[in-house]
Computed example of a mutant assay.
Amino acid sequence: MKTKIAKYYVLGLFVLSSCSKIPLNNDPILGIWTLEQESVGDKTNLFRREWIFNDAYLGRYHYYVNDVIMIETDYRWTKEDTLYYIDYNDIEVPNEYFHITEEDGHQVIINIKNEVVGRRVL
Rank of each mutant, 00 (worst) to 15 (best):
T34R: 01
K79E: 03
Y57F: 13
K4Q: 07
G31D: 09
Y85E: 14
I109W: 05
K79W: 01
H99Y: 15
Y57V: 02
R76T: 13
W77K: 04
Y8N: 14
S39E: 06
E38W: 03
F53V: 09
N25T: 15
Q107K: 11
N111Q: 08
N25F: 14
R48F: 04
T34V: 05
L122P: 08
R48H: 02
M1F: 15
V93E: 07
T101R: 13
Y61W: 05
L13D: 10
T73M: 00
I109Y: 03
E103L: 09
Y8W: 14
N26I: 10
V10M: 07
V108Q: 01
E115K: 12
V93I: 14
Y8C: 09
I91A: 09
L13C: 15
I5F: 14
I86A: 07
V15Y: 00
I100S: 02
K79Q: 09
G59E: 01
I109T: 11
M70I: 14
V116W: 08
S20T: 04
Y88C: 02
Y9V: 09
V121F: 12
D42R: 06
I91T: 10
I110T: 02
S18D: 10
I112N: 15
N25L: 10
I86C: 03
N66S: 01
W33M: 02
F14Q: 09
L13E: 12
R49E: 02
L30S: 09
I110E: 01
S17Y: 06
E36I: 10
L83S: 07
S20L: 05
P28V: 10
H62Q: 06
G59W: 00
Y57M: 10
D81W: 12
T34Q: 04
V40S: 07
V108E: 04
K7M: 02
N95E: 03
M70C: 00
K2L: 10
V93R: 08
Y64T: 08
N26Y: 06
Y57I: 06
